[in-house]
Design a protein around this nucleic acid. Sequence first.
DNA 1: TTGAAAGCGCTAACAC
DNA 2: GTGTTAGCGCTTTCAA
Lengths: 337, 337
Amino acid sequence: MAPTSARPRKVTLADVARYTGVSTAVVSYVINDGPRPVAAETALRVREAIDVLGYRPNTSARALMTGSTGIVGLIHPGTSNPFFGEYGDAFYKVATEAGVALLTATSAGRADTERALIESLASRNVDGIISVTSMTKADISGIRNPRIPLLFVNCPFPIPGYQTIGPNAIDGSLRVVDHLLAHHGHRQVALVAGGTRSEEPEERQLGWLEAHRRLGLAAGPVVRTSYTADGGYDAIGSLLDPPERPSAVFVTSDLQAFGALHAIHDRGLRIPDDIAVVSFDGTEASAHTWPPLTVAQQPLHSMAAAGVAGVMSDAAPTHTLIDMNLVLRRSCGCEPP
Amino acid sequence: MAPTSARPRKVTLADVARYTGVSTAVVSYVINDGPRPVAAETALRVREAIDVLGYRPNTSARALMTGSTGIVGLIHPGTSNPFFGEYGDAFYKVATEAGVALLTATSAGRADTERALIESLASRNVDGIISVTSMTKADISGIRNPRIPLLFVNCPFPIPGYQTIGPNAIDGSLRVVDHLLAHHGHRQVALVAGGTRSEEPEERQLGWLEAHRRLGLAAGPVVRTSYTADGGYDAIGSLLDPPERPSAVFVTSDLQAFGALHAIHDRGLRIPDDIAVVSFDGTEASAHTWPPLTVAQQPLHSMAAAGVAGVMSDAAPTHTLIDMNLVLRRSCGCEPP
DNA sequence: TTGAAAGCGCTAACAC
DNA sequence: GTGTTAGCGCTTTCAA
């Protein structure tokens, strides 16, 4: 039983000092490369001792002294949703580059869980918290100030007192719907929207509306459903049943779009010939559906980078919107390159 | 700028004691509900003080005393892959229930990164490490004993000195391939396998082989490719080009299967009529491809639960294999329920 | 360039 | 039931 037997007693910095025959201060200087200089020869002997004894600094003790854990809390809705999975990876990448570790917890998209998690992470003495938020405007009044930097990403609206970062969803939606209208000549685009976050018309819907308005067209039918593949599947039902079937549909998330594609295939309709489909998110999977999806793609890396930089600098409250990319694939009627 | 202005000075346990007019010991007893009793009335006043002052225990100081952080390190290949995203969620769920926090890092599926991450997490004084491993047998000799409980999941083979947990991949593969052979009457099933982890025939291939052997059939062509959707896409090319096209194919991961479906559609072939497809993993997305995929499904929750329980108890090294589920959908030729 | 020593905030003997 | 106090392992000032 190798691991257990090889776990005798914690080696401390004092052990290293004793072994080397120097003071604990010197060992600390060597480990941290400062704040005082150490003779090259002494430093060498210290490093040897560290190696021989298998010393590893105790981060709790260090954090107790310095007041910083080097850990940032990350709250997100859960990585089962491929979109949030990719969101998570963007954060891991950026955080690693920035030298911070991520203490992660999942909210399952529930605002009350998210709020509880903020408390819970704050009490773990993280240096800051990034929340990939699921809150609506109604929820923000319930946020208790955690007394550490707290920042919200995936956030379409500003929250007084906190930094918020989100995609420019109105513009992204407008562009992908406009592509259907202006480029492919549809007269109207139906909307499959999420219904869970808020009663008020949200950004994706506003962009869809605006695209029609600019061309003097009447915006088409709206179906609200949950942000799930099943939701998308069901939504298509109510959209295709009426005698006048829409010629194109904008689905406000990839996950819903996956279900929508499934439902359309089930009815034996062709995409994009019978009905064109575009969506919002631009996950990797959206490139491998049948047909591949034309999407407004979220700038995950930029948002993650802004998020990590934001908590670490504890910058002043601002609302940052980052532009989305339009990715053209088969589902809108464009030919593959 | 609410958050900053409201962050004056850290409130310590001593502050609470002073405010209440008791000793620090009593406050500690109240917080930890022991180890000594406290008068109900005193406890009440302490709790009031905690509330009024907004006291939050410093976990670093506590960890320094108790020697335990309440944090477990989780290494995984990255949540962009929906399968590992779901794997991650299973861990978050189980960990939350067990009252431990997860310090997460991603290996991108690289064994050397995984090894470095074990070191890095160990030096963060986590109570244990769970690695959703990407190591081959050749890599295990490079593991340095981190002197804390270390356990590998997603691990098809035992690793001397460590707990290992994996799906019963041979049996799962055997069953899904047998379904194609015995139930749908195929004479041969082609294999699209991963090529990245090892040279030796791995479990999924062994199960596929065994299914043929048991029925006295000759196992069909094998294509090796990366564990990506693009890999699956490309693999189908070499499989469908020869004059004799296989009537069924077993793809060893959902991600590859997504690409495979895409490639088959691109060639205008029908699934399952022209070629049946089954795969391995059983992600949520596999229920929403076109057609929905028949899969050998990994028991994520069971494996996560075993993993968390395993590190926390620091149990003796064992190799645990957990049975997979066979999920029948359209892609093999079965009708939807 | 190095050493001695004072804590960081908390827990848990041990006294009373 | 409550108070006193000695550390946990580390960083860093101050003196040498």
